[in-house]
């Protein structure tokens, strides 16, 4: 590809035209949604880290014929959230560090979507929970346990 100085004025203007056209072609729906994303700004959330996503595993893209659900894990100090996304069903487990029984403390999980009301569910005594009817799109989970609240990064499911 030519350096900028090697381009004639006409070539440079044509290249600029393509760049400007790409700007003008931006989908206004996406723009409005992106503006709206700012409403999710929080300054004091404790954020979990993505520990694992099977969609990032080697070979994930070609394992297309194998009907393995997508597995995700998030964690922060002492608390891990494991998820399995199978169609519109999300199965999850909250694991507390040191083998402490997650079910020992009342724990809830909130599923947040940018375009829908949040859904909340109780984690059972063994640490498991489930959400049904989870349609594709951005989502994040908030684990609330013993006064602590842990938020996962947004992920497209």
């Amino acid at each position: 590809m030519k350096s900028w100085d090697e381009l004639t004025d006409d070539e440079l203007l044509a290249a600029l035209g393509e760049a400007v056209a790409e700007d003008r072609a931006v989908d206004e729906r996406r723009r409005a949604a992106a503006y709206g994303a700012f409403a999710w700004r929080r300054v004091d959330d404790e954020l979990a880290e993505l520990l694992h996503d099977s969609a990032l595993d080697a070979g994930a893209a070609v394992r297309s014929s194998v009907a393995a659900p997508r597995a995700l894990a998030f964690g922060s100090t002492g608390l891990t959230l494991e998820l399995e996304v199978d169609g519109e069903q999300v199965l999850g487990e909250v694991v507390a560090a040191g083998g402490a029984d997650a079910g020992a403390a009342p724990t809830t999980v909130v599923l947040q979507r940018p375009d829908a009301d949040a859904a909340t569910t109780e984690v059972d005594a063994a640490g498991f929970f489930r959400f049904d009817g989870v349609t594709p799109g951005p989502a994040r989970f908030v684990v609330e346990r013993g006064g602590r609240s842990l938020t996962t990064p947004w992920v497209t499911i």
Partner: peptide
């Protein structure tokens, strides 16, 4: 890449010929 891999289960992705992210 994550969405392509996640959707790959139900929708063939012929664009991806190799294996893994690399």
């Amino acid at each position: 890449l994550r969405v392509l891999a996640a959707r790959g289960r139900t929708r063939p992705v012929d664009l991806l010929a190799g294996t893994g992210l690399d």
